[in-house]
Amino acid sequence: MDRGLLSFAGTPQPSASATITASPETISDADVMLRVKTGDESAFTYLAEKYRRPMVSFMYRMCHNPAVAEELAQEVFLRVYRSRSGYEPSAKFSTWLYRIATNLAVNHARDTRHERPEKTVRLDEPDQETGTTPDLADGALTAEEQMLRRERLAAIRRKVEALPERQRLAVIMHKYQQMGYRQIADVLKLSESGTKSLLFRAYETLREQLKEFV
């Protein structure tokens, strides 16, 4: 086995990253994944480094818990690694990655649906799930402004979470992962026009329900 994987936990792999980033314009992520398929562990390290942040942020917005989001993001990479031998670049690598992430997030949400009580965000106490205050306090804001801001954030989280599953996924991918209609459609296995319509309905709901906060 290549040492790239084993040393992944320790020091970064400058040589591996350098190899792949030497010509970032010419080599696609799918090509890098094909190198993973041939046993190049440093290529896997490169992909994990590149998509680590987007995966954690996607999972966080799906499950609202940073620790669980990290676990799920790691599970995505583990699944990528396990599937390396059967990988076929039939779609963009990131589309494949988000499809894995979406399945995991949806399954997790369904599995823990009954474990999660109705969420009540207490603005004067740390979040029970995360152990932190709902969001970082801004030193420039007054106590009242901070309270209003936290209320707004709690409302955003609640309203996004209350959207139907596919609308929620589409909004998170569109708004927070900066993905285009085509790619969201590919991940959710919808048509492009269907995805646009799904997003439009979702934003209309959010616009209506968050009216008091804008």
Binding site: F8, R53, V56, S57, Q74, F77, R149, L153, I156
Partner: peptide, 19 residues
């Protein structure tokens, strides 16, 4: 308004745990 909802950065132990 939706932009206000920020996601946390991956923890410094992310790579260690994944490794």
């Amino acid at each position: 308004l939706l932009d206000e909802w920020k996601a946390p950065e991956p923890s410094p132990y992310f790579n260690t745990r994944l490794g």
